[in-house]
């Protein structure tokens, strides 16, 4: 797909990143594009899922006056995929202010997603004032501790971690969860592909704005022996990718509003762009990890 094609197909608002796991390697494409990943033949051995993030239902700022509409648009895009994802993961900040009404709304909307299953991890906006109790009562079924869990699907081991419930400056996993990670992967073969979801990045994307997790290194130390580890996060409202050894980190974009790039401006405030220029001023990133290659292919495209 050319840059032009990608720009034409890509819709920044509500854009969701679709990732396919083929033979342990993760291939990423932007939903709405006509990539080979999206059009891949149905393969019972291929895990395909969608990540959606940072919908902030209840936000009422000029940066996006209709976050509900753009979240609905994202869901429509997922449902319009030429395949049915094995699962959809929302990586947090489902709500803006953790109110009961906002949790009800997001749960109802996620109920309209057509996928094998729908999963979530909480963002800090989902745990305001109640240490995540509202979130856990809505989405916490089947999870342990503060809402973490894991599952296996088509040979891939998936960890969903919570680093937003006891934070100070940075995201924090805590000793209980670190112990969970250690025990959870202890019996796995080292060639099992590992997927790790969290809201806040597990790498130091920009600690000055809280874009990092202070005890992530300990969690990752339990995953070092695995040949393929992919960490997917939200929180930063922009696409970003980096690889470190066998671990690859992908930050997802948002369905709500853009945030500045790290360190640009005094604070991570919602960015209000001139009418009609939002897409032109923003970009999307394709990330692919082709089987047999050790490096990620990254393609940044300015939306037209």
């Amino acid at each position: 797909m050319s840059r032009r094609q990608l720009a034409r197909h890509g819709a920044w608002f509500g854009a969701a990143v679709a990732l396919s796991v083929v033979g342990g390697e993760v291939i990423s494409s932007v939903v709405g594009g006509t990539t080979s990943a999206a059009a891949a033949a149905d393969d019972t051995a291929t895990l395909r899922f969608v990540q959606v993030s940072d919908s902030h239902l209840g936000f009422t700022g000029t940066a996006n006056p209709d976050v509900t509409g753009s979240f609905a648009h994202a869901i429509d895009q997922v449902n319009a995929l030429p395949y049915r994802p094995d699962f959809v993961m929302h990586t947090g900040d489902l709500t803006h202010l953790s109110t009961a009404a906002q949790f009800d709304q997001v749960k109802q909307m996620l109920g309209g997603v057509r996928a094998g299953s729908v999963h979530t991890v909480p963002g800090e906006h989902d745990a305001i004032h109640d240490h995540g109790r509202g979130y856990l009562s809505t989405f916490g079924a089947g999870s342990a501790g503060d809402g973490w869990y894991s599952f296996d699907l088509k040979g891939v081991h998936v960890l969903a971690l919570v680093n937003t419930l006891s934070l100070e400056k940075l995201g924090h996993l805590g000793p209980d969860q670190l112990d969970f990670v250690r025990r959870d992967v202890a019996g796995l073969s080292s060639d099992t592909p590992i997927l790790v979801f969290s809201h806040i990045p597990l790498f130091a994307m920009y600690p000055e704005w809280g874009w990092g997790t202070d005890d992530a290194a300990q969690a990752l130390s339990h995953l070092r022996r695995f040949s393929s580890v992919t960490c997917l996060n939200g929180h930063v409202h922009q696409l970003f990718t980096k690889t470190e050894g066998t671990v690859t980190f992908h930050s997802a974009t948002t369905t709500a509003y853009p945030l500045p790039r790290p360190g640009v401006g005094p604070a991570p405030t919602p960015q209000t762009l001139p009418a009609g220029r939002l897409r032109a001023a923003l970009g999307i990133r394709e990330v692919s990890h082709v089987q047999g290659q050790t490096t990620l292919a990254i393609k940044d495209s300015v939306l037209s």
Partner: peptide, 11 residues
Amino acid sequence: TTPAIDDRDDR
């Protein structure tokens, strides 16, 4: 200095 993310450098 604004930290321009230039991942082309990474590649």
